[in-house]
Design a protein around this nucleic acid. Structure first.
Lengths: 408, 408
DNA sequence: CTTATTTTGTTAAAACATTAAACAATATGC
DNA sequence: GCATATTGTTTAATGTTTTAACAAAATAAG
């Protein structure tokens, strides 16, 4: 039951119904392909004639193509299958991280077209954009069969303004008020450029993943544990952004207001207990703070190293992981109590030790969730080789083609 | 950018456009009345003919009525003003609390028709429903000019299942799995009955308040501090309910996981720091727990008493309020970081001391919010005499008539 | 092989919505 | 009294969905 905002609504015109049905048809082709016109008419509970008209439009626009004829039924004319015509158009995804930047090229349904390429992130924006542009142009040249690039999606570990395309503040990059879109626009005049926070992008990657269509989860949370902790929340099929595009910052909801110092300036944030730095510093026995310099040994030590040691019998390493797991679960319980999502996705280096930490996480969740059902909220690990950030960047480009039209 | 759920969508039919525009027109009449057809055509950016057709339907259905002619303009034919025809239909709102139950009767735009009546809450559901039914029937009989009752909205301090109409668990009432709707249905066969949690209802009261239309806040949070702490969250004009209808339980997000014991069984929940009991126990110097019996003196002592003492120079009382205020602000900061709402509404007894505690609340919010803009999130006190719970119960009945149709 | 049956997809016409244009009604100003 | 302006209705047009009929293509049965 949504309220119509009297200051911002969309009156229905003659074309509104068609627009709605068009997007539904596209969505269903995406999720059910290969699919015939007759199938669509049954799925959409409308007549075949209507579908014919809709599909004719989509064929003319080149969004859909006809394929082979099927032969499911025992009798009757064979259906001609429909597919998304995804090959001529492409999306460029860019994942900007503190040390390296990764690029992926996909078609319009997110099928990877080239191997992922990467380069060291130059923290000077102008130089960075120069390198990035060269690589993007290379990718586009190497794929002559794709006639058009529908957009570039950039994902940044920090706060962004998706309307202006600016990076407001990315601590690990040292960027503040960097107009990434304007810089890229100089190189790619006609290609739409999207910029989003990486935590939110990860959530997008799951809601728009073709796989997610099977489960029909329209409420989900993505939690990414890394140097920082990023959280993206999807409610009613829509990423929540908030008034200042900062919604979802559960990383700085406290476990204990008088607890460990956090990089944000406050104390006892969830992030301060479960970030990679927190786990590693726990292993080294010191209550290292993000505001203090690390010892040389700790600075070169990664979570992967820690997990390796835990697996080979290092009790202290396992204990450090288990304690992080407990805090991870306690914070997840807060998210579950607050949002009550259908599914939670977990990403980040520490999830590679999921078999070691799952019981601790689940126990902690059960400890602080209000009712038993909430304690059983399904968790799914998203491994690094699924590239959730890059997938989210892809979604920034491809999702608008399938999204519901703004109505009422 | 909302994703279409391929497992649950609504294909647009011939009537969809009209349905959308009809709801927009109703919304605009509600928020702008008195308003002419020509005004509507300008507001909706469509031609007057379209409005004529829409309004003719609404006139026939009796939802809208024509009134006097205005004379705004210097020249030209005078407009005939349109109004919502709200007088023939009514809504019954019921606020069930541990000690007393309150009833309000309104017309379809929420104008109060009778004085609020109340009676002591009988904790035995059958007896309770008997008394309640008698009073509702009395109200309906006393107002013969209202020909139809469009619904009964019940608000409960506890978990509800809005689909089945059951009260799953209401601790202060001692109710568990009580099928309130079925019990009431026996007395009122043809009247729709809605049941909702009181925290969520308070949020509904604000999003559907006519006043809110002026600010066009479609993202808001309502926090009600009382014996417990209730939170309702509205995003994109829609109350978030979550998979188990428990979304919004920020009351049990911790301030300190090792902190004060909470009635939920966990430790250090926000509620344990800011509930009325917490404030009072703080005043009496003991760290009273909700799991321990109160001293006789404390049991009969109310927040109102405490505020009175604070106002008349009792330093200990003021200190107790100030500490609660600080914890209130720290928890609000978590909500702001997580949701980033356009506005936060605060209700509950302690808000009557807002002039005493506002600085402490705001300082605590600023202390833990991530960026300066978030620290300035507007707060508005909702005084008890605005009856947010009853208003929310009214909204349960009246809102569907104005809500956006489910589309795509 | 022929015919009936079934299913797919198209076409033509009907029904229903928005939209454009013309027009009637009603007011003011000169 | 006439030009002008505004409101609201009417009429016709345009663009949808919807219904019904039909052509195309395959299988099953006689």
């Amino acid at each position: 039951m949504r309220k119509i905002n009297p200051k911002s609504f969309t009156t229905a015109t003659r074309g509104t119904s068609r627009e709605i049905n068009r997007q539904i048809a596209l969505t269903l082709i995406r999720t059910h392909q290969p699919v015939s016109r007759a199938d669509l008419s049954r799925l959409m509970d409308t007549n075949r004639a209507n579908i014919t008209f809709l599909i004719n439009d989509l064929l003319e626009e080149g969004l859909v193509r006809e394929g082979a004829t099927g032969n499911d039924a025992k009798r009757g004319r064979r259906p001609t299958f429909l597919y998304l015509n995804s090959h001529q158009r492409c999306a460029i995804a860019v994942d900007i991280r503190a040390t390296r930047t990764y690029l992926m090229m996909t078609d319009m349904i997110g099928k990877q077209l080239e191997n992922i390429v990467s380069f060291p992130t130059d923290l000077e924006p102008e130089k960075f954009i120069k390198t990035l542009s060269k690589l993007i142009k290379q990718l586009l040249e190497d794929n002559e069969e794709v006639s058009e690039c529908d957009g570039i999606g950039l994902v940044v570990p920090g706060m962004t303004d998706i309307k202006t395309g600016k990076v407001l503040h990315a601590p690990t990059l040292g960027w503040r008020n960097v107009d990434l879109r304007a810089l890229l626009r100089e190189e790619f005049e006609d290609i739409p450029i999207h910029i989003e926070n990486s935590g939110k992008a990860c959530a997008l990657s799951q809601i728009w993943a073709a796989r997610s269509d099977m489960h029909a989860h329209n409420d989900l949370v993505f939690v990414s544990v890394s140097d920082g902790v990023g959280v993206g929340v999807v409610i009613n099929g829509e990423l929540i952004r908030g008034k200042h595009n900062t919604a979802g910052e559960f990383a700085h909801v406290p476990l204990s207001i008088d607890g460990l110092p956090c990089s944000c300036g406050a104390n006892g944030c969830w992030e301060a207990y479960i970030s990679n730095l927190a786990t590693i510093s726990r292993y080294f026995g010191k209550n290292l703070s993000p505001r203090q310099p690390l010892s040389l040994e700790a600075a070169n030590f990664t979570i992967e190293d820690l997990v390796k040691r835990a697996r080979t019998g290092d009790g202290k390493a396992l204990a450090a992981l288990h304690l992080t797991a407990r805090y991870l679960g306690l914070g997840l319980a807060s998210i579950i109590n607050a949002i009550d999502p259908s599914q939670i996705y977990l990403g980040g280096e520490i999830t590679e030790a999921w078999d070691l930490i799952e019981p601790q996480v689940r126990d902690a969740i059960k400890e602080r969730t209000l009712i038993r059902d909430l304690g059983a909220t399904p968790l799914r690990i998203v491994p690094a080789n699924e590239y959730p950030r890059l997938r989210g960047a892809v979604a920034l480009v491809t999702a608008p083609a399938f999204a519901a039209p703004k109505v009422a």
